[in-house]
């Protein structure tokens, strides 16, 4: 199954980094781009919270063209991986139709972060991808 174009481009760029250290630096660069919205922009409600994510991540979306614009809050300052993934999902999926977003497999996190993720970390990050896909489907149900 092919990924949405912008997301595929990000993955292709990450694959260009030959060493783990350089790839990690690139991911931290994504995390550095992340801007944590205030509660006025993204209310920290329980139903917006990503289950199983220790980084205290919340997700919501707004209509944006044919698709949606995704907002993420990461309230744990140590949640570097969550910040990186949030930014990657925003750049890779914002504005895309739901059908495109639904193509994203939950385990894409291993393509992004590598296979050495612990189970705790992988659960939280997978939860972010799932919540994004749930948000994406809202367009059809509104």
């Amino acid at each position: 199954m092919s990924l949405p174009g912008p997301l595929q481009e990000i993955l292709d760029d990450l694959k260009l980094f030959p060493s783990r250290a350089e790839r990690i630096d690139a991911l931290i660069g994504w995390g550095d781009e992340f801007v944590n919205p205030g509660a006025d922009q993204l209310p920290r409600d329980e139903f917006r919270k990503v289950p199983g994510c220790e980084s205290e991540v919340f997700v919501m979306s707004e209509a944006d063209g044919e698709g949606r614009r995704y907002l993420f809050a990461v309230d744990n300052p140590q949640g570097i991986s969550a910040m990186a993934l949030a930014r990657i999902l925003q750049v890779g999926l914002n504005g895309l139709p739901d059908a495109e977003v639904q193509k994203v497999p939950d385990d894409i996190i291993f393509e992004i972060f590598g296979n050495e993720l612990s189970m705790g970390k992988s659960l939280g990050l997978t939860g972010m991808v799932r919540m994004t896909k749930i948000e994406s489907a809202k367009r059809n149900s509104v």
Binding site: L27, I28, Q78, I80, S81, F113, E116, L117, S118
Partner: peptide, 22 residues
């Protein structure tokens, strides 16, 4: 750490990383 990005994102000055899996 458990989180593979944490060390590179900022560690105590002079610290090295020992990764539990690698």
């Amino acid at each position: 750490n458990e989180d593979p990005l944490l060390y590179s994102a900022g560690h105590i000055p002079g610290a090295v990383e020992v990764d539990w899996t690698r």
